[in-house]
Design a protein around this nucleic acid. Structure first.
Ligand SMILES: [Mn+2]
Ligand SMILES: [Mn+2]
Ligand SMILES: [Zn+2]
Ligand SMILES: [Zn+2]
Lengths: 125, 125
DNA sequence: GTATTATTGCAACTAATTCGCATTAAAAAA
DNA sequence: TTTTTTAATGCGAATTAGTTGCAATAATAC
């Protein structure tokens, strides 16, 4: 199933590129200047993830956030797993350039990591 | 608002105590031998969290899991933030005795951490 | 025993995400 | 350039997890 170029895809990608924060479907929709269907936005975002263009973070609010972050693209696989920070005040999630370090017990195979720190961000203090 | 002792509370606590894994509301309900309302289970679990008897983990599946784990009770605040592991095969979350280590940029205040590794657990390999 | 109010059950509700299906439109083929 | 193929989209309905209002129940204090 080959990917196709569509205005929808471009628009959503542009929004993500211009954002320093990870965005929820809702946030993406609000920042779009064209009207795109909710389900479609989810589908596009998930396709981006499949293609490793973005990554998905799940907050302790249980919501999905999507980010295309600099670290992810330029650095090695190791730092690909980095911490995220969710500010309780401005309710945004951002990628921190802080690698996730851990060691798992024998016999465990880690495929992914979802690490979110919560608190108050620099701007909101 | 003082807490009261009820059979419901005892039953749910017993289930959590006997479990080596973190449990969702659904999982708790299934393991109970008495019938307790869904909303009530959530309320009891959240009360446990308020009272620091349990802690809540949110998986990348967006669901809430509750655990009363050994490390949490006997160790210091520092290790209270530990990694969790969610097995994609048996779909359970467990507390790892692996501390979460990080350093945040200046001006950030961390209040909580939700760190979940995903993959295949020892048993399922 | 009586009063107070935390706890519970039930049903309705909310919010986030997904899904089925018909329609549209990229891109490949002719 | 037209035709064909099928990925992408829109819409509405469905699903899932969790919450909330409210009346009934029951633990605890008096
Ligand atoms: Mn990132
Ligand atoms: Mn734990
Ligand atoms: Zn903030
Ligand atoms: Zn497993």
């Amino acid at each position: 199933m080959n990917r196709r170029n569509t205005p929808t895809k471009e628009a959503i990608l542009a929004v993500l590129s211009n954002s320093k924060k990870a965005l929820s479907q809702d946030a993406v929709e609000k920042q779009l200047n064209i009207k795109i269907n909710r389900a479609t936005i989810y589908r596009v975002l998930n396709r981006f993830c499949e293609d490793k263009l973005t990554h998905k973070i799940v907050g302790e609010d249980g919501k999905q956030y999507f980010a295309i972050c600099k670290p992810c693209n330029k650095l090695s696989e190791t730092i690909t797993h980095h911490f995220h920070f969710r500010c309780l005040s401005c309710d945004t999630i951002e990628c921190l350039q802080v690698p996730v370090v851990y060691a798992v017990p024998n016999g465990y195979e880690v495929k992914n990591a979802n690490c979110v720190l919560t608190g108050i961000c620099k701007n909101c203090k």
